[in-house]
Design a binder for these strands. Sequence first.
DNA 1: GAGTGGTCTAGACCACCCT
DNA 2: GGGTGGTCTAGACCACTCC
Lengths: 253, 253
Amino acid sequence: MNNLQLRGASSLHESVREELLKRIKSGIYLPGSPIPSTAMLSEEFGVSPITIKRSIRDLQTAGMLIAVAGKGTFVKERRRFLREVDVWLSSIDNARKLGFRPRLQLLSITREKISDATMSVLNPPQDAMLCVRKTVLADDLPIMYDATYLSSDIDEDIVEKFSECSVIDALEQHAIRIVNTRLIIDAAPAAGKVEEIFAIPNGYPMLRRLYKVTTTKSRITIFGIVESPFDRLACSLNLPANQMSGSYLKSKK
Amino acid sequence: MNNLQLRGASSLHESVREELLKRIKSGIYLPGSPIPSTAMLSEEFGVSPITIKRSIRDLQTAGMLIAVAGKGTFVKERRRFLREVDVWLSSIDNARKLGFRPRLQLLSITREKISDATMSVLNPPQDAMLCVRKTVLADDLPIMYDATYLSSDIDEDIVEKFSECSVIDALEQHAIRIVNTRLIIDAAPAAGKVEEIFAIPNGYPMLRRLYKVTTTKSRITIFGIVESPFDRLACSLNLPANQMSGSYLKSKK
DNA sequence: GAGTGGTCTAGACCACCCT
DNA sequence: GGGTGGTCTAGACCACTCC
């Protein structure tokens, strides 16, 4: 009935997972299409439905499958957005350049403190700031969740711009020059609304870009966090020799 | 007996998870220390041990806990290494600068093709290459798993250097100059040995840096993949205005 | 030997979707 | 109504660790 236990898997649910993964990779199960139901797989493999469910859940958290209650379990479509991080190009323009149809959606404008642990490396102010939250969609699929933090004494018409377009475009439209961008790329578990928006289960990690943008106007320093599902986005950057500093160029020791 | 269901959690295991997370964050359960056993938590919360296990497993994949069979479940120590990606500094020197005691461990030297999907963006050669695998430890904890790919016609003494020290240091010792580094930062599920080394479960994603280093010697182009658990490493970079290109500096449209 | 987590199973209930 | 996945439970077995 089955041909499991072929790989180096030490447990049943692992074997099942490997086998399903193999079928996805080899194209037996196609992106966007449903895989057989738990019951059917259970019968095919001669394993308890619970064990099948376990494997499927693991593949879900690994971003390979997406299960929809009442409908079935589907192979996730894999199309990844390459964010060019070393170029001053807004996410929107970046997406357009890569052939996506990008769209921006304002979620909320609130007053909040920045509480993220990683963010503290960038030394954000301790007091409450204006927080503009939006999602960026590419081809109608959400790929980014952005929280932009502005000092709360900022002009209302600037805030408006921030809710309509990206940080870079908003600044440009007010003729404010960027002096420096400090970026931290990390991954952290999805929390709250982010889980919903991207249908991410169980606090699974999101790829994040935390930024601090300093401008010529000393009053205007912008902080922000952009979160993306790791299977929808990757960052790319280029480091030419003539721009580099560090131990390599100095005579070491 | 319990005070669950307080958060916006829609299921029992979610409530339990939130409660455990709260206790970790508030310091009731301390880093490095064990949390109560499944049986005890089951009693305390008035929930099936299986539901407790479910919550614990989710917190494990989220990098908060680490369960050791026969010993107990422990709160993971959180100390994160900030890799400065825009500076030409070897990982080793970077770690040392941050106060870690770094160490390098050679794992294997093999001949392999580069098969990673993301890597294809960097257009690596299709034929088999020399693959040097090593781990980087900081304070005796593994933080990076590096696979360096070299064209297989390279001198043996250079290969030797690559297995002893980082790419940058190896090149420097042979007086080879780096012309450009192209970097892609993404996250991808852990596979095979990586799961073991970092005690990562279920193909949980690792933060990765894929690089292509071009040098003055045309024969020598180096590819590589560095993987790290996302709770042990983040990348940082700085983008000063004078080095930037892109739409912002050009007159747009 | 007592305690730990890990695995696998069986069975029941729910909410949802589609026809 | 018959299918789907999601949740929760009970119970049994194993391998491991520590005393």
